[in-house]
């Protein structure tokens, strides 16, 4: 049986909050194969965002093992961890676009750190923005775009490095329902093209669209359900 793209074994993460330790993840075991579409659900504070950060190499487990495409993440030094992040596309609820930059410069940002020449960066960013339907908004700044358009820019930024894994943290949380559907359809299109898609959400409707639903509570995985559509 081939090794899963992502494999977590006994992963725990403890934070200090107001001096007291808070166990955000508690012995999580989870495998996610390449090309899967997974929804991570759970109440606020259940640990799903922490799990997403660990999956995206933004954070490292305090205990347990996390292997990404066969690489043990806990053993990576900061620079290697940064390089590993380039294989991941992140979409955040708050978009995290830089307000002073145009759409195309926001999208090109990740390429700045991978040694891509400026002209190539821009060409790729333009291509991806066209792909998400914003070919006519290249020079617009985030403040000049609607919420849905901003999230499309964020999706384009996640895609520009051609990642194998797309992680979305409440991607529709700040959008009206129409824009939300447009964004999730865009993400699913990318999944159908072969990208592994993991979405954190508390929207049951959105969670129901995934092929697998992982439920969390108090830092533990309390249920994994395969879903048919």
């Amino acid at each position: 049986m081939p090794e899963p793209l992502l494999a977590l074994r006994g992963v725990s993460k403890v934070y200090a909050r107001d001096g007291a330790p808070v166990r955000a993840l508690d012995g999580v075991d989870l495998d996610i194969a390449a090309g899967e579409y997974v929804a991570l659900t759970g109440a606020s504070g259940s640990g799903k965002s922490t799990l997403l950060h660990i999956l995206g190499c933004l954070d490292r487990p305090d205990q347990g093992s996390y292997r990404f495409a066969g690489t043990e993440i806990a053993s990576l030094r900061p620079d290697a961890l940064a390089r590993q992040r380039r294989a991941v596309g992140f979409v955040f609820q708050a978009f995290h676009l830089l307000p002073r930059l145009s759409a195309v410069d926001n999208v090109a940002l990740p390429l700045r750190y991978s040694g891509v020449a400026p002209a190539v960066r821009r060409a790729r960013a333009v291509e991806v923005l066209r792909r998400v339907g914003l070919g006519d908004r290249l020079e617009h700044r985030p403040g000049e775009l609607s919420g849905g358009q901003q999230q499309r820019v964020a999706v384009a930024r996640a895609l520009v490095g051609a990642p194998s894994l797309l992680l979305c943290d409440e991607p529709t949380g700040n959008l009206d329902s129409r824009s939300g559907v447009e964004v999730i359809e865009l993400l699913e299109e990318l999944w159908r093209e072969g990208c592994t898609l993991i979405v954190v959400t508390h929207d049951p409707g959105l969670a129901a669209r995934a092929r697998r639903r992982v439920s969390m509570r108090d830092g533990r995985v309390v249920g994994v359900a395969e879903q048919e559509r």
């Binding site: 995206g56 940064a82 390089r83 992040r85 380039r86 830089l98 990740p110």
Partner: peptide, 16 residues
């Protein structure tokens, strides 16, 4: 801070 966090999240190395 948030912008630097974003840069790190999209693959900037700490040295960069």
């Amino acid at each position: 801070t948030s912008e630097i966090g974003l840069k790190l999240a999209v693959g900037a190395r700490p040295a960069q």
